[in-house]
Each structure stands twice: as structure tokens, then as C-alpha cells.
Amino acid sequence: MSQQEKLQQIFRDVFDDPSIELEPSMTADDIAEWDSLSHVRLMLEVSKAFGVRFSASEVSSLTNVGDLEALIAAKGGA
């Protein structure tokens, strides 16, 4: 499973929406349930699935899915 497929599955699970198709430009405005509360839950799942750690400033500074993908890659997430 590629990084994007893995990330997409996490999004689908966290937001309970199997129709989500991730695009790098996607933001919280594109997913109705993506608010500040679900964002930290999402990041907790991403952290576990990819075996990476995030700081609070990294968690709060992400602006879209592309940023998140780049951050995971930069941390060597697998």
C-alpha cells in the first residue's frame, strides 16, 4: 500500500467516510467533519500508522493534505 493509499484509508476511518479521495490541495474546508477536534485525532492515527512523531506546532501548522504528506515523508514515515 502506497503512502497516499495508507493516508487515504486513515482519513476514511477517522471521518467515517469511505468516499474520501485525497488530493494534495485538500483542506479542512473540503471535509465537513474535519475540525480542530478531529484534526488531533487524525494526527494521532497518522502518527501511529506511519511510526512518526509530531510536535504540537507541526500539528497546528498544516494547511492541506499535501503539507501532511510532505511532513510524513520528511520524517521517514513508512
Binding site: V40, R41, M43, L44, S47, K48, R53, F54, S55, A56, S57, V59
Partner: peptide
């Protein structure tokens, strides 16, 4: 344990500036 840092350590406004941080 699997957890995420939500608020980095900082002075607590309610506890006289003692260090405080939040984790999910």
C-alpha cells in the same frame, strides 16, 4: 503508549506560570 503532543510546554496562566503541556 500512543499519544500526540497537542500543546507544547508553556507557562500555565492558571498555575503561576508553572510549565504545562497537553497530550492526546
Amino acid at each position: 503508549l500512543n499519544f500526540l503532543e497537542v500543546v507544547e510546554p508553556r507557562p500555565a496562566v492558571l498555575f503561576g506560570g508553572r510549565p504545562v503541556a497537553f497530550y492526546l
